[in-house]
Structure formats: C-alpha cells, structure tokens
Design a protein around this nucleic acid. Structure first.
Length: 114
DNA sequence: AACCTGACGGACA
DNA sequence: CTGTCCGCCAGGT
C-alpha cells in the first residue's frame, strides 16, 4: 500500500532535510517557508515518514515547542524516543519538557521579487 | 464530486 | 493548566 510521494510531500521532505543536527523547526515554520496555509497539512505529510532517517522528521516540533508527534504517535514511548534522539543531537529542553528557544532553526529565506 | 481526517495553531472559556 | 471551536489544506475513500 505504498504510494509515490506527492509533490507537496517532496517539498516538505526536502526542506526539513536542511535542518541541521542540534536544531529543530516547527510545523508552522515549515508551512510558512513552503507558503502553505495549513500547518496541519505539513504534519500530515510527516505523519508517516517513508524516508526515515534520511528525512529527519524528529527535528520538527510544535509551535508551542512541545514535541508534537513521532512515528504516528502523539504520546507514549514513541514520543519519548523522539525526545531522546533530539537530546543526543544536542537539543536542550527546559524543565517543562519544551525545546529551548535557542535551538530553533531559521530557514534561509529568499524569494524572487515583490 | 462530496465528504472525512489530521504528528497544527490560535483564540477563548 | 484543561478543553472546545474554528480555519486551514493535502490526501484518502
């Protein structure tokens, strides 16, 4: 039941592949960088990442800097795994389990001409 | 085509 | 903090 990645998904995967180790981005920031009006659509594209770990979907968290989801789950053991992976890459968390704001990656933005 | 569903986010109670 | 509601849009049925 596989499906070739859609154009939209490829754009998502390509973009998040540029997030360096030790940094994270958010669904909203990815959506904005892609000029996509739905943050949820980005989450849906990552819901099942067919290219793990080539595409580092664990480096995308929620706008509130909570973990979001991982491998189809939004809680439990899978999510704990996501946090560990990030910690091993150097991402720091505060006491409430939220990502340190300094670890947010800023996408290089440029566009043709207004 | 006509719904339904989301790893979302922001507003509000 | 929790929970609800609504807008968003790509994909699936």
């Amino acid at each position: 039941m596989s499906r070739p990645p859609t154009d939209f998904e490829i754009r998502v995967y390509d973009l998040i592949s540029t997030i360096p180790k030790g940094k994270v981005s958010t669904y909203a920031l990815v959506a904005r960088a892609l000029d996509c009006g739905s943050n949820q659509a980005v989450g849906q594209a990552l819901r099942r990442n067919p290219f793990a770990p080539r595409v580092p979907c664990h480096r995308v968290v929620s706008a509130a800097l909570t973990l979001g989801g991982f491998n189809g789950h939004r809680d439990g053991d899978e999510l704990a795994r996501k946090r560990r992976m990030l910690e091993e890459e150097g991402v720091r968390f505060d006491a409430q389990g939220r990502v340190h704001p300094a670890c947010i990656h800023v996408f290089q933005e440029w566009w043709p001409a207004p």
